[in-house]
């Protein structure tokens, strides 16, 4: 675990929240093993061994034989930081429970299947940097209109407008708070661009959201 991460106790990520990605995968999701498209937000955790900070190196993952994996990818999301205990809130009230916003990067193996929890792909040590800081909620007027950009070695590779999310921030907070009571400092990564960005050993990755910050990390293994 990296000391002094900004995450308290839980980092929930929302997969498949990019409308364009859902549309592109509709055919796949009507077939086995999925059989029908998701009716609920598709959620996964980045557990505490993954949490890291701005400026930290992200370990290049090893396979089960101890060799470096061939490919890693990164996605970035707005991180919604819970400000007070959030239990069974309505979407109308949900944003009142947000304490602030930050940037979450999710480094992983390429997303090949959404059928089973992707422990091998997603739970890699140091693979979830969060930061550089938490910006107070009242400084971010319209979080659903923000855009998340990823640059690799200075070149822009991805831009995702949160307006293109299948489910809004308020809707996600409400739904998740009916599954689990959220505590202050817990973070929800609300949505990633469907196309994850390929990274290589030694790459410098900047995940930026205007008004929230730029989270910069370097891939290890070089």
């Amino acid at each position: 675990m990296t000391a002094n991460t900004l995450v308290n106790s839980k980092l929930v990520c929302v997969a498949l929240n990019d409308k364009a990605q859902l549309a592109a995968l509709e055919g796949t999701f009507n077939e086995a093993p999925y059989k029908k498209p998701p009716t609920q937000p598709v959620l996964y955790y980045k557990p505490r061994n993954t949490w890291s900070v701005d400026g930290a190196e992200v370990e290049w993952a090893k396979d089960f034989d101890g060799n470096d994996v061939a490919e890693m990818v990164v996605g970035a999301s707005l991180g919604v930081v819970i400000g007070k205990e959030t239990c069974r809130v309505s979407a109308a009230d949900a944003l009142d429970y947000v304490g602030g916003y930050t940037v979450v990067a999710d480094y992983s193996l390429p997303e090949q299947s959404y059928y089973r929890p992707d422990i091998k792909g997603k739970c890699l040590d140091t693979s979830a940097p969060v930061g550089p800081e938490i910006v107070a909620a009242d400084k971010v007027a319209t979080p659903d209109s923000l855009s998340v950009a990823i640059k690799v070695n200075g070149e822009q590779k991805s831009a995702f407008d949160l307006a293109n999310m299948e489910r809004s921030i308020a809707e996600l907070i409400s739904t998740i708070s009916r599954i689990m009571t959220l505590q202050p400092g817990e973070i929800i990564a609300v949505g990633f661009a469907g196309d994850r960005v390929a990274v290589a050993k030694g790459d410098k990755v900047e995940a930026s959201i205007e008004g929230v910050g730029t989270l910069t990390n370097t891939l290890g293994g070089a």
């Binding site: 997969a15 093993p33 609920q40 598709v42 059928y115 992707d118």
Partner: peptide, 17 residues
């Protein structure tokens, strides 16, 4: 009832208070 074929068993099934 809450099982869906996405990251199954999903958080709605297994992460409740």
């Amino acid at each position: 009832d809450y099982l869906e074929n996405y990251y199954r068993p999903n958080l709605r099934v297994k992460s409740r208070d």
